[in-house]
Structure formats: C-alpha cells, structure tokens
C-alpha cells in the first residue's frame, strides 16, 4: 500500500487512532542505553532495623558500557509518597515533582555522602522520630497512630543519588524499609543462558559480571544475530512478607521476580519480563564492536540485583 493510499485511509478512520499514529521520529527505546543512565540502585539490604547500616551502590551505564565517570552524591531521607496520578476530574495538585530527597516535605535522616558507594547508619530512634514519621505518614494520621504504624509496618526511607557527569545531573532514588523485626534479602545475582551458553555471576572490582561458565572467552555473535536469552527460572528464593494494603488491611504476600534488560546497542523484542514471558530476544547490532548488556532482577519488595554481560559482535 502506498503512503498516499494509506494516508487516505487514515483520513477516514477514527481520530484517536490517527492521533496515536504520528509520523514523528520514534522515541528512544527504554531498553537501549545510548547516553549516561542510572540502570539500577542496589541497597546491601532492602530492609534494615533501626541502628543498622545500609550500603548503597549504583549500576551506571552509557553508550560505551559501564560508566565510572562523574561524581555521585547520596542522601537518605523520609518523605511522603508523591501523587503522580492525573485523573480526568481536575488535574490540579496531581503533578507534584518527585525528585528523590529534593522533594517537598522531605526530612533528611543522615548526612549526604559524595562517593562511589555510600554507607548510612539508620538512627536507632528513628521509629519514634516525630518529624520523620510526619514526613512518612502525613498529617491526616494522628501522632499515636503514626508511631503504631512505624512499629507494625515500618517506614520507607528514600536513598537518593545525584550523579553528575559531563555537566549533566541524573537523579535516581530507591526505598529502604526500616522495620524493627522484618528480614529481607536481595535476590541472588542472576545467571542466564545466552545463545546456548551458560553465564554465571562473578564479582569483579565490586561489580557483578555475568561470564560464560565454560571459560572459553567472551561470547561472540555475528551482526544482526537473533540471540535468545533464557534466565534461570528457579524462583525458590522468593520470600513471604506482610504488608498493610491501601485499605489498611494486613495481608501476607510473596515476592516475585521482575527482570529488566538493557544494552548499549542492538534491539530487544521486549525489555522487561515477568513469567511466563521470560526469554527475550536480543538482536545484535549491524556494526561490529563490543556490546554491553545488563540484567536487573527485582523481587518487587525492594530487593534488587544486577549483572553485566559483554558480547562481541563481529
């Protein structure tokens, strides 16, 4: 069908569909890392007790792969959950900026740290700290109930990262649950089968890298090769936990695995996955070179782990 005919047909179609099929340049794919980008934030423990320490690290990338450039400034704060819904009734009040620890109503919990990684010590009395509880639960809840909620549900602190690179600032944040008794761990670093080869996670220079288990060097593919990536489907690591839902009821849930894929080149048929769609296809780029791939595994309960792959295209 010629472009002219197609356009004529479009004219006779529904406006909303036409409005959604624009001829503008396509947006960048979220799974492609072609400029500096925070891929993931990882807390050493997603849930901590008052008085414990938590270490924050970041997976950073750019078009060249893993990025080690720029400066990283970390903050830890308490704040209300920001409204981000835009309802058709009237949108005013709906678009409160959400910029980590720079958000309105934030209470700093620890001194900011400028370093590649940051370790924060949670104040031992934080669950009785009225300004922190007020920031976390709001003023529509009585002080007595705020203290009770802190003991039963804990409070979520925000670990916020400002990454300055090439005069640009990138902000990312992650929640750390402070709970007097709950235990929670990050999911195990993922391992996958990539193009038929098994990859396992190995820590090198503080970075988790996924490398072939056969020891035969980096994985090599031809340009435009369709590579099927099959992750480990064993999710025995998921943990049960209790939460208070939006209606105030206490419910027991299980964690679940959420996988996100990124690469510096090539193309993905989809960049995020939950069971049963766990095996995406990565199409190698047309031009030879080294491609970096990331897999980020989240448990939906604050736990995160990540792994980096290197693939040679030639």
């Amino acid at each position: 069908m010629s472009a002219l005919n197609r356009r004529n047909l479009c004219f006779f179609s529904v406006f909303s569909l036409l409005a959604s099929t624009q001829c503008s340049p396509p947006f960048e794919q979220p799974a492609l890392v072609i400029s500096p980008r925070v891929i993931a934030l990882i807390a050493s423990r997603p849930t901590v007790a008052p008085g414990d320490s938590v270490t924050m690290t970041a997976a950073l990338g750019d078009a060249m792969g893993v990025s080690t450039q720029g400066t990283l400034r970390w903050s830890l704060c308490a704040r209300p959950e920001v409204s981000s819904s835009g309802l058709p009734l009237s949108s005013f009040g709906a678009f409160e900026p959400d910029i980590g620890c720079n958000t309105r109503g934030t209470v700093q919990v620890a001194q900011s740290v400028t370093a590649e990684r940051a370790t924060f010590t949670i104040p031992p009395e934080i669950l009785q700290d009225e300004p922190v509880l007020l920031a976390a639960f709001g003023d529509q809840v009585s002080a007595e109930t705020r203290r009770a909620l802190a003991q039963s549900a804990g409070i979520t602190l925000i670990a916020s990262l400002t990454w300055t690179v090439n005069s640009q600032e990138f902000i990312a944040f992650k929640r750390v649950l402070v709970h007097p008794t709950e235990q929670n761990t990050n999911p195990p670093t993922p391992w996958v089968t990539l193009g038929g080869r098994a990859f396992r996670s190995i820590a090198r220079e503080g970075v988790q890298r996924c490398e072939p288990t056969d020891g035969n060097g980096p994985h090599v593919v031809a340009p435009m090769t369709h590579v099927v990536i099959t992750p480990d489907t064993d999710e025995a690591w998921v943990e049960p936990f209790e939460r208070i839902d939006a209606s105030g009821q206490r419910v027991t849930e299980y964690e679940a695995a959420f996988r996100n894929w990124f690469s510096t080149a090539g193309a993905w048929d989809f960049g995020r996955a939950r069971a049963p769609d766990l095996a995406p296809t990565w199409v190698a780029p047309r031009t030879p070179g080294t491609s970096t791939l990331w897999l980020v595994l989240r448990d939906g309960h604050g736990g995160t782990s990540a792994c980096i792959f290197t693939v040679l295209v030639r």
């Binding site: 997603p46 959950e81 976390a136 639960f137 909620l149 549900a153 804990g154 409070i155 979520t156 929640r175 649950l177 709970h179 939460r243 208070i244 839902d245 939006a246 105030g248 679940a256 959420f258 996100n260 995020r272 989240r298 939906g300 309960h301 604050g302």
Partner: peptide
C-alpha cells in the same frame, strides 16, 4: 501503595 510498601517494577 499501602503503608510503607515498596512499589514493584512498572
């Protein structure tokens, strides 16, 4: 979001 709940991806 409930009370002190960490959102899951997406």
């Amino acid at each position: 979001l409930g009370v002190s709940v960490v959102p899951a991806p997406q």
